[in-house]
Amino acid sequence: MFPFIFEWVWDEGHIMFFGAMWYVILILASGLGYCLIKAVKDTLAGGHGPQDHH
């Protein structure tokens, strides 16, 4: 899972597999981070109201 783990080898298999995995984690984490930060910002800006969407 990490390069410092015993089984890790720098071969295509590991690079492809974990590359994809870390990429996905990155997307999810940054997406979630973006949402959180934006929500904090909006909240501090005072934006609120159930009526502003749906």
Partner: peptide
């Protein structure tokens, strides 16, 4: 009713396509 959660829900809806 909590503004933060309201906003979070709102932004997450916006980013839903990525997820």
């Amino acid at each position: 009713e909590v503004p933060f959660f309201h906003n979070l829900s709102h932004t997450m809806h916006g980013a839903m396509a990525v997820f």
